[in-house]
Write a protein that binds this DNA or RNA. Structure first.
Lengths: 156, 156
DNA sequence: TATTGTTATACTCTATAACTATA
DNA sequence: TATAGTTATAGAGTATAACAATA
């Protein structure tokens, strides 16, 4: 009961990553920008927490957000309580952009999944990806609860 | 029988992509370099075909390969028949590097999958990712057989 | 002093356009 | 002329280190 085969998991994830990139390109959206939009559609947040959640450095957040702000998809708002904090929030345009991105991704990944022979396989592939989503959520939760200043660097 | 839920497929793929990046970073390896190594371990190939297979432009291949050549992981060899062609091949160091990368990816993705409650779910998640690998193979085959000069640009 | 966010800097990937070498 | 690959150029994401503003 312990013969789990991880042999191609990295390769497959890396290939899927490239397809995500390809699917978003026509929208002039990068994977990093897409991840930021998804994170923000769940509600406004501050830069430092976004860095944690997205597993990137603080300067990366600044850079990615800057592009989205220039594009009118995200707005910055200084906190009145602690003026060091800057809340980031999606604009309506940002929501529209995200919706387009989701559609593009579903089209692309859907057409890939559609290559599978039977619909049961397709459903299985989709379900499993949902399992990965669940696992990612838990791994993230553990990362943050473990210690605000993780075991190594940004904790990734 | 047609209620497939694609709602979170893009998001999950995008998050997995970042984790791949994070896992490879300690090896000073990027996802693009990793994909190149995997492609080359299957046998030497020429730049133009690699561009197709990896779904990137020709100059991208040049850039990624250049880094790997400088590092001693890949070697270039002019073809004697058609001197325009340059076969790219992994060196022993390249194979070692790839092995390390696979290990790092399996560790990282394994620890994420390990967050799932029961082992059956973990097995299911791994199996499903294998399904995606299969789907990606078929989509690639279709892309190439369709037409050497695809429907749009490089075919992505 | 500690924290939040940005700026400075450097490197890689990506693409398009232009160029070289070969066919 | 057409093809394979590179070079030129530009834009974006990433990181670390240094800095500013605020606490």
């Amino acid at each position: 009961m312990d013969e789990l085969d991880y042999s191609s998991v990295g390769w497959t994830a890396a290939r899927l990553a490239r397809q995500v990139e390809v699917a978003l390109a026509p929208l002039d959206l990068t994977p990093a920008q897409y991840r930021m939009l998804v994170q923000l559609v769940r509600g406004p947040d501050v830069s430092s927490r976004l860095a944690e959640k997205l597993a990137v450095s603080a300067p990366s957040v600044t850079a990615v957000v800057e592009g989205l702000v220039l594009r009118g998809a995200v707005e910055r708002a200084h906190s009145v309580e602690d003026r060091r904090l800057i809340a980031l929030a999606l604009t309506e345009l940002g929501r529209t952009l995200l919706a387009s991105a989701e559609e593009a991704l579903q089209d692309k990944l859907g057409s890939i999944a559609g290559e599978l022979v039977d619909e049961a396989s397709v459903a299985s592939a989709l379900d499993a990806l949902k399992l990965w989503g669940e696992a990612l959520d838990r791994a993230r939760a553990r990362r943050h609860s473990a210690k605000p200043s993780g075991t190594s660097g940004t904790g990734n």
